[in-house]
Structures are given as structure tokens and as C-alpha cells.
Design a protein around this nucleic acid. Structure first.
Lengths: 109, 109
DNA sequence: CTATTATTCAACCTTTTGGTTAAGTAATAA
DNA sequence: TTATTACTTAACCAAAAGGTTGAATAATAG
């Protein structure tokens, strides 16, 4: 039970993987390109990507010889919801917060 | 770098530890009482609590022969900020977020 | 002082994690 | 057809994680 939260949080518990996720925010990437900025082997990156896949935080889709990595925001959201529902983040209304932030932006301009 | 996010997320990546945190939401607890609902040894719970301590998610304070476990919400918040600032809440102003939360609380009373 | 209670520590075990290198597969380019 | 490119897999390793039991420590109760 709660197996996926386990996997999501565990996946986020490694800074290499968090960096990969941040990179994927910008665009989908091929495995080789994901590996490029890191100082570890391609095989190690391949394993990190498998962990991210199993957690649901990314999906990988093969087209030709290239395997594309694509961020899956909704998986992260599962973990975010757990945190939000925890303590002071209880029943946090994200939409309301977004509206609030926009208003703040206008006020501070 | 980002060592503490590593530890916080890793700590959250275990359902026993997440359950402990939920228990501590209600009140501070002694180690023995934390262990009570679980099917594992006291020593194992003691280790889980050490991991939670090192992550900063709890603090333990010894009074007499009892060691009290106390939730530290701000540590969880570090991880929450990372998640919130990921993707849809880019450039999140946490002060604004706190103000928002306070307003929300007042509104829901 | 002696038991009891609360908790940790030490030694051990198994599985997982994060890394390596070398070989294997599969698609494309020459 | 033969390289080359883009990966994954296999075999290995060291360290960490999550568990166990049994002994140690330390505070309180009797």
C-alpha cells in the first residue's frame, strides 16, 4: 500500500534524479542528452531513468533508435498532494494560491 | 549540495516513516508509543526515528528516561517548496505563500 | 539496592542502491 | 554491408537500508 508514494519520494531522494527532472521541465530529451552534463556513465543514467520511469515521474518512448524521456507532472502531484494534506498545507487550494500570486505580482509592479 | 533535500525526500520514501509523521501531527510522542502500532521491533523504529531526525523532519528531546519525538514542519516545507516551485509554481515567493496560508486559515474559520 | 521501564547499540543478515566496465541489441548512415 | 550511434543488459562491487536479536545504559519505582 502507498507503494507509489514510496517510489516517487524515493526517486526524488537523489539529487541526480532531481536535476534530470528539472532538465526535463524544459523539453523532452534523449537518454544521451540527459547524460551529457553528468559525470557518471551512460549506464548509470539509464538506471536512474528506469527508477524515474517506475515511479511514474517520467515516461520513455522509443522512436527509431532514440528513446525520449518525458516528464509526467501528475505523478509529482501525487506526492505534492500528500504533503499539502499534511499539517499546515492542509486543504491547500492551489488554484486560489495561483490567483493570489498573480495579484501579488500586479501589486508589486 | 542539496544534501538535506536528499535526506528529506529519502526519509519520506518509506511508508513506515510517513505514518510516524502523521502520528506526530497530533502530538509529540515517546519512542515506545510511536512503536506501538507497528509490527516491527523497537530497535527498527529507533532507527527510523534517527533517519527522521537526521532529515530534520523531527527533533528528539530527552526528558527523564523518555525521549520525545516532535514534528518539525519547516523541514517538510523545504521539500514542499521544491515541489511547488517545480513546474507550475515557478519562482514561488514563499513569504507570499505564508501570507496566503494565513489568510486561508482565517477564511476557513 | 534492585527491578523495571525506556531506549540505544552492536553484531549480524539480506536486499537495494548507485556506481563501474564490457558486451549485446537495434536502428540508421555511409 | 559495414560502421556508427543510441541505448540496455550482465556481471560485478561497495555501501546503505531495513530488519533481526541480545546486551548495554540510564532513569525511575518499589
Amino acid at each position: 500500500m502507498n507503494n507509489n508514494l514510496d517510489k516517487i519520494f524515493a526517486a526524488l531522494g537523489d539529487s541526480t534524479r532531481r536535476e534530470i527532472l528539472i532538465m526535463l521541465l524544459e523539453d523532452d530529451m534523449a537518454v544521451t542528452d540527459v547524460a551529457e552534463p553528468f559525470d557518471i556513465s551512460l549506464a548509470a543514467i539509464s538506471k536512474h531513468l528506469q527508477i524515474l520511469s517506475k515511479s511514474g515521474l517520467i515516461v520513455q518512448e522509443k522512436r527509431g533508435r532514440v528513446k525520449w524521456c518525458k516528464l509526467q507532472m501528475h505523478a509529482m502531484r501525487d506526492a505534492a498532494i500528500w504533503m499539502e494534506s499534511f499539517g499546515q498545507f492542509e486543504q491547500l487550494n492551489f488554484d486560489a494560491f495561483e490567483i493570489f500570486l498573480k495579484q501579488e505580482k500586479i501589486l508589486h509592479k
